[in-house]
Design a protein around this nucleic acid. Sequence first.
DNA 1: AAACAGTCGGATACAGTATAACGTCTCGCG
DNA 2: CGCGAGACGTTATACTGTATCCGACTGTTT
Lengths: 150, 150
Amino acid sequence: MASTSDDAVLDRADVLCRARGVKLTAQRRRVLAILCASPRPLGAYEILDAMREGTRTLAPPTVYRALDFLLEQGLVHKLESLHAFVGCSHPEHPHSSQFLICKTCGAVAEIEDEAIARSLGSAASMSGFQPQRRVVEVIGTCAGCAQKGR
Amino acid sequence: MASTSDDAVLDRADVLCRARGVKLTAQRRRVLAILCASPRPLGAYEILDAMREGTRTLAPPTVYRALDFLLEQGLVHKLESLHAFVGCSHPEHPHSSQFLICKTCGAVAEIEDEAIARSLGSAASMSGFQPQRRVVEVIGTCAGCAQKGR
DNA sequence: AAACAGTCGGATACAGTATAACGTCTCGCG
DNA sequence: CGCGAGACGTTATACTGTATCCGACTGTTT
């Protein structure tokens, strides 16, 4: 189910890539579209299956290459604790975000919390460490599932 | 190279497990010893190889079972971004710690930063999210490698 | 001692995740 | 046109993790 907001995301991605001088090819756009249309993170092989809809015959490297590109461009994120991928909710500015992952319903909320970013940064600089990539994932129960659960 | 401090860690682990009424069996102790003796995180199959030294014939489940136990007891941590494991540097108290991972030399520093824990906690509670597990890994360049690098 | 329950671990097989290596095609450019 | 770079197809394979079944050991109960 591709909603209008998904189309909007894709259009924004087009604009971004053009501005950056990189190519959002058909395959890459397709992977992004599939991720945006999903309410939950998808594994690479789930994406692969989705792309095969309609008799296409594709192999894993195709998906991984597209994902590599999208990750580089900040258009998708990888959830390390799930081995899965999500579309980024605000790809315009470079950012390092954090994720709240509900293990009950599988939903993932991407947050961008300044306090977390700051405390991470200062902890790193205290050790003279130069951060390049930040993985921040909190696994637990979302508000909705906590409600139902009790 | 099992240093004296490694032995100390193992002894502390013995005491901890006894106090908790769980068994640090020979296999589990062995896995912990291998992890503690390594200056860098090890993958499950690297641990497996290390355990095979001396003609023993072992299969993956043996290592994964031991790792599950050690993870539950907080004696080792898993680094999601590396698919690898490290010995915990302070297993006495339950804790959620954070990791600085140098992609140049492979060294990992485990830190326990109150500010990070607090900001994570407050971001979660703002969404009504109940955290169970926290994955915080910063990938970058450690002080030593940054020195040499330039 | 015999029977039993529970835990640990050996062994085989397999599922899921990711990449290496090589070939082809296309496009932009000199 | 000829060339180089990038994107993609294809095959094979490596790496990570689990399911399942079974045997060995321990401690307990009768």
